[in-house]
């Protein structure tokens, strides 16, 4: 499978000289789901936002297919095929469901009449709610809309920042089943998650980020062994133990 997203030695952060992501490297192939895991404060969300163009990159490389995109503006990345779903406030609440999707289609120069029925088929709940303001949707529906919005321009890579946050276990299962469907269509998915169990259940690989660096990049089944992740998340605790 071809590499859809390649991150190499990435350093990024909100303030100059204060890197939160410190030399992270990761590759994702087309159609693959990679779960980005790690303890709180490891820099998972910052890494996702840096790749999406929302956080300044200090050094390193990010390639979307063959194209170097490190430091590119977020709106150009979205149009170039990199979809990003933020953790919170990930829909335009004052716009209806249809307006959210039509706007994404218009700015990406995608034919809404052709693309929206495909997305409504993938997310039938959205079809029923298309005339409702996004701000009135339930948490699960919002997450579906956020994914659908990011999928409108047919992205090659989809990055999701904690899509399970605030959802019930049943809704998480539903949302992740949709993600598996999306990946099966050839989209590379980078799933930033705290819900390790659910993420590894659908991911091919898991990358563990500790203190801004990818500490381990291994097949998901290897990380599902009890006790492995705890050791990887807190390597210093193990070293300090008597």
């Amino acid at each position: 499978m071809s590499t859809a997203l390649a991150i190499a030695e990435l350093e990024a952060g909100y303030e100059p000289g204060l890197a939160i992501v410190r030399g992270a490297s990761l590759e994702i192939a087309a159609g693959e789901i990679v779960a980005l895991l790690g303890p709180n404060g490891a820099g998972k969300s910052t890494l996702a936002k840096a790749v999406a163009g929302l956080v300044p990159i200090f050094s390193g490389s990010v390639r979307l297919g063959e194209k170097e995109i490190a430091g590119a503006q977020a709106h150009l990345l979205a149009r170039a095929g990199l979809g990003f779903v933020p953790q919170t406030e990930n829909v335009f609440a004052p716009l209806t469901v249809a307006e959210n999707l039509e706007l994404a289609a218009a700015v990406a120069h995608v034919k809404a009449k052709q693309r929206l029925p495909e997305l409504y088929a993938l997310f039938p709940d959205l079809a029923k709610a298309r005339r409702i303001d996004a701000g009135r949707l339930s948490g699960g529906q919002r997450q579906m809309l956020a994914m659908a919005r990011a999928l409108v321009p047919n992205p090659r890579v989809l990055i999701l920042d904690e899509p399970s946050a605030g959802l019930s276990p049943k809704l998480v299962e539903h949302a992740f089943a949709k993600l598996a469907e999306i990946a099966a269509s050839g989209v590379a998915v980078l799933l930033v998650e705290q819900n390790v169990k659910a993420a590894l259940a659908i991911a091919a690989r898991g990358a563990v980020l500790v203190e801004g660096r990818v500490h381990v990049d291994a097949p998901a089944r290897d990380l599902q062994v009890p006790g492995v992740l705890e050791r990887l998340f807190f390597p210093h605790a193990e070293a300090a133990a008597p």
Partner: peptide, 18 residues
């Protein structure tokens, strides 16, 4: 609609391609 979107959430507007 892009104006309403930016007014609501500029960061989300950017990752939407606006």
């Amino acid at each position: 609609r892009a104006m309403r979107a930016v007014a609501h959430n500029p960061a989300l507007a950017r990752v939407t391609g606006i």
